[in-house]
Amino acid sequence: MKVTSIVDGIIIDHVQSGTALKVLHYLHVDPTSTRLALIMNTDSHKYGRKDIIKIEESDDLDLTALGFIAPQATVDMVRQGHIVSKHKPDRPVHLVNVISCVNPRCVTSVERGADQCFHLDDSGVYRCDYCDEKAEL
């Protein structure tokens, strides 16, 4: 299999094996209208297996959720065919409208239009701002 380099865009590497499609969902990337390459379940020296996502021309992509869904990933910014920066995503302290509260009694479940707000607690778990329910992927 041959996957060519991208000229301008991002490469999200070291994504947990089998979760690339979930990452695209949380990043709100529409695979039907975005030029991208998915490499799934490829060999990794560090993790055994990994996924890689290459997204062409992705200047307006919000990577906030990446620290939540794939904290071990690395993000390479590519310009004119060269990697110009490389970083690991930070785990966001707050998430707004990325995930939904699973508690059926939570105000976000009964109030229309209420934002789904979560915070990172001291133990590294995301909890609902309203009912303190633990977040689930």
Rank of each mutant, 00 (worst) to 15 (best):
I10C: 04
T32F: 12
T74G: 15
K86E: 09
S5E: 10
H14S: 15
D76L: 15
D115A: 15
C117P: 03
I53D: 03
G113Q: 09
D13I: 00
Y47E: 09
T108E: 04
D122Q: 09
I6S: 02
C131Q: 03
E136R: 07
A135T: 00
Q72L: 05
C128V: 00
T42F: 10
R79L: 08
H45G: 05
A114R: 14
L21N: 10
C117G: 08
K134C: 13
E57Q: 09
I12T: 00
I6P: 02
I11H: 01
F118V: 00
V3G: 03
I83Q: 10
D129L: 07
D121P: 12
S85Q: 11
V29I: 12
D13F: 02
S58K: 15
K46Q: 13
K50H: 07
F118Y: 11
R49G: 10
E57A: 06
Y47A: 14
V102N: 10
L38I: 11
I53R: 10
S17C: 09
Y47C: 10
N103H: 08
D90C: 07
V75Q: 03
M1E: 03
V15T: 05
I11E: 06
A73Q: 03
T19G: 09
G48K: 00
K50S: 14
E56N: 02
N41R: 10
F118L: 12
D51Y: 02
G18N: 02
S85C: 07
V84C: 02
G18Q: 01
D132Q: 11
E56F: 12
Y47K: 04
D129N: 13
S33Y: 10
E111C: 11
H45N: 09
G81P: 15
S58N: 08
V3L: 13
I12K: 00
R49M: 12
C131D: 08
V7R: 04
I53F: 07
K86G: 09
L36H: 02
V98P: 08
N41W: 09
K134Y: 05
P104R: 00
D122C: 10
P71V: 01
A65C: 09
D122L: 14
K86I: 02
V96W: 08
E133C: 11
D13N: 15
V93P: 08
T74M: 13
C106W: 08
D62M: 04
A73Y: 01
M1Q: 06
D43E: 07
L66C: 11
R105M: 09
A114W: 05
R79D: 05
V98M: 05
L95V: 01
D43A: 07
P71W: 01
D62Q: 08
E111S: 11
G9R: 00
Y47R: 03
V125G: 07
D8S: 03
Y26G: 08
R105I: 00
E57N: 12
V84D: 04
V110Q: 13
D43R: 07
S44N: 04
V93N: 10
L24E: 05
T4R: 15
S44K: 04
V110D: 06
V23H: 05
H82N: 11
T19M: 10
I53Q: 11
G113N: 09
V96Q: 13
K86D: 07
I39K: 13
V96N: 11
E111D: 11
